[in-house]
């Protein structure tokens, strides 16, 4: 098992969930610190998750 796969998958899911939640609740309570933390950090998590998935995919392509 390439560990980057489950890590990438979990972070992508977390990221997308936070992005969706951040967009849907953009008004209420979200702005406790003046920025939409869910949306912003969701993008960071999703980007990290996809990077991991991409690295895993590239490694698999090479070994074939």
């Amino acid at each position: 098992m390439d560990l980057r796969q489950p890590i990438g998958l979990l972070f992508s899911i977390f990221g997308l969930l936070l992005i969706a939640y951040g967009v849907l609740h953009a008004g209420a309570g979200m702005l406790r610190s003046g920025i939409n933390v869910d949306l912003f950090w969701g993008v960071v998590l999703a980007a990290f998750g996809m990077l991991m998935l991409w690295l895993a995919g590239r490694a698999r392509g090479r070994s074939k």
Binding site: L18, Y21, G22, H25, S33, V37, D38, W41, G42
Partner: peptide, 8 residues
């Protein structure tokens, strides 16, 4: 509690 909204 101070900084994280639901989700975070």
């Amino acid at each position: 509690g101070r900084f994280y909204p639901s989700g975070m």
